[in-house]
Nucleic acid binder design. Sequence first.
RNA 1: GGGGAAUUAGCUCAGUUGGCUAGAGCGUUUGGCUGGCAGCCAAAAGGUCACCGGUUCGAGCCCGGUAUUCUCCA
Length: 873
Amino acid sequence: MNASQVRATFLDFFKEKGHSVYPSAPMVVKNDPTLMFTNAGMNQFKDIFLGNSAASDKRVVNSQKCLRVSGKHNDLEEVGHDTYHHTMFEMLGNWSFGDYFKNKAIAWAWELLTEVYKIDRDRLYATVFEGSPEEGLGADNEAYNLWKPFLDEDRILYGPKKDNFWEMGDTGPCGPCSEIHIDIRSDSERRKLDGARLVNRDHPHVIEIWNLVFIEFSRMSDGSLKNLPAKHVDTGMGLERLCMVLQGKTSNYDTDVFLPYIKTLEQLSGIEYTKGGDASIAMRVIADHLRAVSFAIADGELPSNNKAGYVIRRILRRAIRYGYTFLGFREPFVSSLVPVLVDHMGDAFPGLKAQQELIGKVIAEEEQTFLRTLETGIQKFEQHAGSLKDKVIDGKFAFELFDTYGFPVDLTMLMAREKGLEVDMKGFEKGMQEQKSRSRAAAETDTYDWTELNPTGEDTRFLGYEELKADVTPVKYRKAGSRGKTVYQVVLDRTPFYAESGGQIGDRGWLEADGRRYEVTDTLKENNLTIHVMPRIPDKWPGSVKAVVDSNKRRLTENNHTATHLLHSALKSVLGSHVQQKGSLVDDRRLRFDFSHFGKMTDKEIRAVEQLVNEKIRQNISMEEHRGLSMEEAGQMGATALFGEKYGEKVRVVSFGSDFSTELCGGTHVQATGQIGLFAIVSEGAIAAGIRRVEAVTGRAAEEFIRERLDELEKLKAMLKHPKDSFKALGQLLDQNEDMKKEISAMRQMQLGQVAERMAASAEYIEGINFVSGKLEMDPGSVKDIAFRLKGEVERLFLVIAHHTGGKAGITIMIAEELVREKGLHAGNLVRELASHIGGGGGGQPFFATSGGKDPSGLDRALSEARKKISSF
RNA sequence: GGGGAAUUAGCUCAGUUGGCUAGAGCGUUUGGCUGGCAGCCAAAAGGUCACCGGUUCGAGCCCGGUAUUCUCCA
């Protein structure tokens, strides 16, 4: 059975049992501050478990793409070293939202594994929760008894909190769980040692395959457990492991999920995958990370230097590093695996196929830059290693290499070993700890538990498509703060406030309670909650408050949002259908739109796009809006959906001219395009490989933008005295200026030459020294010039020039090199002595020195003292 | 969000406690030589040392700020 059959069988089995099949949510999470990536199948149902949203289907089945690389579940450093950890994996799960509980969950799991997938019964074990006195929880005897009909009692094991109490994160839904383990060792080994003794002992062949979680609590921020209003079932079975079992393998990497990449890597590197050794680890790392990174890019998350993008970069770089060190790759290689990946998974995940070119380009670009980083790191290392006194590489240096130049420390260690050196890892760790505590201190935020006012158990209803003010009921609020700043987050039963999403910023405005105004500074979405951010709240909440949106700001934002849709369509029609939205930001001042496109837009293309958008504005097209459509219906209307965007079951379609712009969108828009008035592109540029960014303004801001440019042009023309051909006039002016600059500089040189000559002629030959002196009204730069001219012209020179300009005085001394050698003179010392006459200081080298001071009246004295000095040489 | 670093000729980079009028290689232009493989020789052009301010007799170098890029941590 190959992977797609395994997946389909799972979904079909539960469909038969009355479950609705849900698609996988995007792997990259938006709107949840506690989570960057989907790390479990349950993430998209979190709000249902918490009681914030109602479930529309009581029984659900899905296969969810997950990424475990940060936070509570972090497997990144394990990946590759064993045969069963992954960064990205698919989690098969069946769900009950307040419907069936432990009984059916256990019975169906048994039925599917033994009767459908035909797994040997005598290889299976189950674990149940042993209880935890500190949490005040007893043993899960209910689950134990439910297993008894299927398994002998010596195959049902009690397990501790660590293994049998599942929590999503530091806070959130949780509950006891029952795991199913399988023993895939050979018969002879199984005879030698009972499998029950290897369960949860990190044995590579006695492993957990399915976790049945019985969710009934929510973990609060103070660590306590709260009962949830309903009980739920959340199960998760890793597709990759299941494939291993069903395909009779002992490593996930030997299944059809990973083997194609390993085969390709064998060809590219010329090294055989032998299952042992560093080269094999490297191949597993690369095969795993290729999948994670490609799916993340398809979901719209590009490698970058912070947040989720940084995690993606780190995964990719880990793959490159392993390929570089253990497979000998010196050129980009990960990107060349992308076509193999798309061949293999493109059918199950169309987003991957549609964006194949982009994924390849982005990965290749990242590989290039990282290989460059490695090169400079190696250079720095060689330099440092060359200047070493003992055989130990400073931990501080290793950390600097890593922290500042991104050079991986394991490479530092490897290179050190090759040279017979050691690395002071303690010093490195110390630097690392300091870095971490610095960041933690800076990022500390506190959120407190909710205070319930009028609980509803429903999503906030959004009124803002029609209303900008409404009388509403406060539902709950909490304090949130970071570094001393405290704000309140308030949830309402209904609200006219638009919460930031889909690139459109959140509304501002105020709440009126008991005749007083309380400012709303921002509106955010956290999962399905709409949160009003408020610096102050009423001491005592009334049953009803008036919510009022800042309508001016909202209208300007709507102009920009609609213009963004028009721009999107215009780009597609001018540049081609390969244009995909990669991100957007819409506020009241401007709009920003990122999209996939290869190469810079020409001026002509920019103008064409601008013209097309303005054309659509002048046509004053009315908005057509359809709410509550299914994805299928929206698809039939030709609506553009975004990869990596999570849509609910019911979607909204906004269209401006059904033949021009139709998009899935929850944002707010103008009633008719004419309101936008004018559209102007302000800039176009690159933000990553294959991704361009356009910034634009609308309405009054666009007018001002154009007005400013016209004014600028007008002023320039006026300065040129309104010539017939401004460009020609300016060109001539520039040429002329260039010529004159050259001429002036030549003349200045000539002048200086003349002065120098005159001075040379006035040389006095005293005791084997050509003494040249003079007092000049000149800037120090010119004096220096003269000094160096004379140096080339007069032999055995001792030059002293006293000069002043703008009330400042200076003395410059030049001494011929041979005099310096013969008599041991030092211009710097001499000039400092002379500078005392002008109230200043100075210095320089033995043959040339300068000084400066504020008192020009001492210049003559300085000169005569210089003359006297000669006799003492 | 917090730390570290980089920015010098068209490109890749040197530039050592602040002090030889800012250099190299490649590329460009010109002239000469030349039967080859990056042809050879000679010469020239090309720099607001990212930007703004400060310290100093003197700043590419030191200090502060800004911008851009890289990098680590969260």
